Simulated scan of single mutants.
Amino acid sequence: MSAKIKYTDEPVGPLKVVSDFLPAPEELVFKEDTVKVTIALSKESVEFFKHEAEKHHTQYQKMIRRLLDAYTLAHKRPLTKRSSRRRKRAAER
């Protein structure tokens, strides 16, 4: 049970002006470099992404693109000392 709010015409108290910290709309538009490709995906995968996109009110192609971008980012990370040693040994064999 929520309490009712009682509004009055009393003074609010000292006010503080807050500077505008929000970015301009132009700064919110991110243009990504994209390349159009033709790819055949399994029907099951496409149906999955379409269903999930509908649940989250977005486009399924955008979800697939973000998944690929996340995969790319994860595999572009610099090699650790241990993983680079392992790759070096594998290349020597």
Rank of each mutant, 00 (worst) to 15 (best):
V12A: 05
S84M: 12
F49L: 05
R87E: 10
Y60N: 03
Y7C: 04
P23L: 08
A24T: 12
L68W: 05
T58I: 11
H51E: 10
E32Q: 06
T34M: 06
Y60H: 13
V46R: 01
E10I: 03
S19Q: 12
V18R: 03
K88N: 08
H57D: 15
P25A: 11
K31F: 03
E47P: 00
E92D: 13
L28I: 05
H75R: 15
Y60P: 01
L68P: 01
V12R: 04
H57Y: 10
K50P: 00
A40C: 05
V46Y: 00
H51G: 03
Q61P: 02
D69Y: 07
Y60C: 02
K43R: 09
P78V: 09
A3E: 14
L22I: 06
S19C: 07
A90T: 08
L28A: 11
A40P: 00
M1G: 15
V17M: 04
L68G: 12
K43D: 05
L22T: 14
D69H: 12
S84A: 07
L67I: 02
M1F: 08
Q59A: 13
K4Y: 10
L28W: 04
K76S: 15
S19E: 15
Q59K: 14
D20T: 04
R87Q: 13
M63D: 05
F21Q: 09
K16C: 02
V46M: 03
H56C: 06
F30V: 15
S45N: 07
A3I: 11
V37Q: 01
T80C: 10
A24N: 14
S42R: 03
D20A: 10
P11A: 07
R87D: 05
R77W: 01
K36L: 04
K81M: 08
R82F: 07
V17D: 08
S84D: 07
T34H: 04
I5N: 12
A70E: 13
V37I: 14
Q61W: 01
K6W: 06
S19T: 08
F30W: 10
E47A: 09
E27N: 07
K4E: 15
T58M: 12
K43N: 04
K55D: 11
V29T: 10
A70W: 07
P11T: 08
I39S: 00
E27G: 02
P23D: 10
I39P: 00
P23T: 09
K43Q: 05
R66P: 00
F48P: 00
V12Q: 05
E10L: 13
T72A: 15
A3W: 05
V18S: 04
Q61T: 15
A24K: 13
Q59D: 15
K81I: 04
R87I: 13
K6H: 13
K31H: 10
R85K: 11
P78Y: 05
D69E: 14
L73V: 12
I64G: 02
M63L: 15
R85V: 03
F30Y: 12
R89F: 03
K6S: 12
K16T: 04
Y7P: 00
V17K: 11
K31N: 10
